[in-house]
């Protein structure tokens, strides 16, 4: 652990400029234990810029564990042990002097259930900006983020009057998306973002993913294989904490190289 290079995120990648193809986020030999129980077994994969990567697998396979270890959300879990590396711009986010706060600002996250704050719509979106000291042009940034989440037209008349709780489930999830986009992360992690939504709301989120991946890296965990096929460029298949197969989405769903992958996508288990 100690011989790892010191960590610095001083260099910020250009934001809205052209997307390079080299991976922005790489996972190398990542193993993870909750107490004595191993949840990830030496996973290695990389997430290229401007691509959506889907992580699929049956319940309990370690999908959420994997995605939560990409922005150190697992820090809150007691008795957690991690081995291996998660490299962001080539630097390990788990070295001792890495700042989890900055990691999380640059690698945003949307959760399984919509979880707006008990605050107004405006304050929900402004929250991340405020805590990160981005207080200039606050109104513009909030509006911009709501536009990107395709929510602006629905909420612009009661930004400060309505609470985030007053919105429908789909709207709440797009509010959470806007909230995450407001701080302009380079990577967006989505942990089963549509599992609590109806088909119409799901379609809206999927459209948004198609838009967003033109300018940022997206990692989406889903238990829905059709969704993975629709939105992602690459797909990773996890089983019992093991990364079984990682391939371009079309290839994984049409010509899986591992018999376990084939069994899963053809519905033999899961």
């Amino acid at each position: 652990m100690n011989e790892r290079s010191s960590f610095s995120l001083g260099v910020r990648a250009p934001q809205s400029s052209s997307c390079q193809v080299e991976p922005i986020l790489r996972v190398s030999n990542l193993s993870l234990w909750y107490g004595k129980q191993q949840a990830l077994r030496s996973a290695t994969l990389s997430f290229p810029v401007c691509r959506a990567t889907a992580v699929i697998g049956p319940s309990g396979c370690g999908k959420s564990t994997l995605i939560r270890s990409l922005n150190r959300m697992n820090d809150l879990v007691p008795h957690l042990r991690i081995e291996g590396e998660v490299l962001f711009h080539g630097q390990d986010i788990y070295v001792r002097d890495a700042d989890p706060v900055e990691v999380r600002r640059r690698i945003g996250m949307v959760f399984q259930k919509p979880n707006p704050f008990p605050k107004s719509i405006y304050e929900n979106v402004a929250f991340g900006l405020r805590v990160n000291g981005l207080k200039d042009h606050l109104d513009d940034r909030v509006e911009n983020a709501l536009h990107r989440a395709a929510l602006w037209d629905e909420v612009k008349d009661h930004l400060r009057k309505k609470s985030g709780f007053d919105l429908s489930g789909g709207q709440q999830q797009r509010l959470c998306l806007a909230r995450a986009l407001a701080v302009e992360p380079e990577v967006l992690l989505m942990d089963e973002p549509c599992s609590a939504l109806d088909p119409v709301a799901t379609a809206k989120i999927e459209d948004l993913i198609q838009e967003l991946k033109k300018e940022m890296t997206i990692v989406i965990v889903t238990h829905n294989m059709q969704q993975a096929a629709r939105v992602s460029d690459e797909t990773a298949f996890l089983l019992l904490g093991e990364l079984v197969e990682f391939a371009p989405t079309e290839q994984l769903f049409t010509r899986p190289s591992d018999p376990r992958t084939e069994a899963y996508i053809t519905g033999k288990f899961g």
Partner: peptide, 11 residues
């Protein structure tokens, strides 16, 4: 989930 949402935004 409120705590997680906040932390995930870089708070």
């Amino acid at each position: 989930v409120h705590r997680e949402a906040s932390l995930a935004l870089g708070a």
